[in-house]
Design a protein around this nucleic acid. Structure first.
Lengths: 169, 169
DNA sequence: CTTCATGCAAAAGATTTGCAAGTTC
DNA sequence: GAACTTGCAAATCTTTTGCATGAAG
């Protein structure tokens, strides 16, 4: 199901292939390859879906690699530049990211009840967006499209009280 | 062009009609009607497009009504509840709002160069969103759809250096 | 051994909250 | 007069930055 966009030697995991790509990126931009940065790349690729910088800190510390928030925040632009992750919107004043890693573009259907997210992609919508941009003389550079709703489970639990207050699962 | 969704006596401006609606809302929710809150409603309705809480503070102080940020932040949920404004996304860690005031739904085309925003609405896209939600068993409650690009002017100026760093302006 | 990376603590910016004093109902 | 609002200052929270120390090339 997942396209194999980065060449890799047999026996090398896809994740390690991306770590290698990150090294090349760093070399190419005259930055330094460090263990901490590689660990960050692995941690970012291990995140299930959206994640917050804090999640990376937690992930690394959990596996015994102490790291400071400052380092994570300073590394994020590098991971973005290398195409490993991409910002996917802010929530409650916190910027979220997700592993991009060569995956095709997609948008999100998000449950306001439990935070569950489903990825979706409709070429029709993409095309219409291009139309809108062109119509107004804009050069399209990107977009953010989130559909909000209640997932099946949350509709059942349906406590007809709060709706958008229970952030985070 | 603008629908008249709130009944009003002749001679009463549309804005005052909304102020009146806000009073009703406060009464209905057992909150108190204060001059500061009414001033906030007028200030919010006077904002040209997207605005930040700080803009309301500035607007009120400019017209001689001193107000503290805390009060503005505490009033925002009320204005939202009354349907006067609605949050329209975060940018750079700051939550933005815009006057909802009975205007029909629309999404935004935003210039990443100068921040200029154009409103758009395509029923086709709206319908597709409903389809996506239904397909996954979600009950649609809302969405956020922003198209990002460079407006005609910014394409001309086109300093082929920075792209997304010159926020504001 | 020069340059860049890291950690720590402090700084900055947005938003929230505790508390005393002022208003609305 | 009781309950709610407001302003102020202090507190939070996320992200950034200065600086001294440590590691990569």
């Amino acid at each position: 199901m997942r396209r194999n966009l980065s060449k890799r030697k047999p026996g090398q995991t896809q994740r390690e292939a991306f770590v290698g790509g990150f090294r090349s990126y760093l070399h190419g931009s005259l930055r330094r390859v460090t263990g901490v940065r590689e660990a960050l790349v692995r941690a970012a690729l291990s995140q299930p879906g959206h994640f917050h910088p804090e999640d990376l800190v937690a992930a690394l510390q959990r596996q015994g690699v102490p790291i400071s928030r400052a380092t994570v925040y300073r590394a994020l632009p590098l991971l973005i530049g290398a195409g490993i992750i991409e910002p996917t919107g802010e929530q409650g004043g916190r910027q979220l990211y997700e592993a991009a890693a060569g995956r095709p573009h997609h948008d999100h259907l998000i449950c306001t009840g439990c935070g569950k997210t489903v990825e979706f992609f409709l070429e029709t919508i993409e095309a219409l967006q291009r139309d809108v941009a062109r119509l107004h003389g804009f050069t399209l550079t990107g977009h953010r499209h989130e559909i909000h709703g209640l997932c099946p489970k949350c509709q059942t639990r349906a406590a007809p009280a709060e709706t958008a207050d229970d952030r985070d699962n």
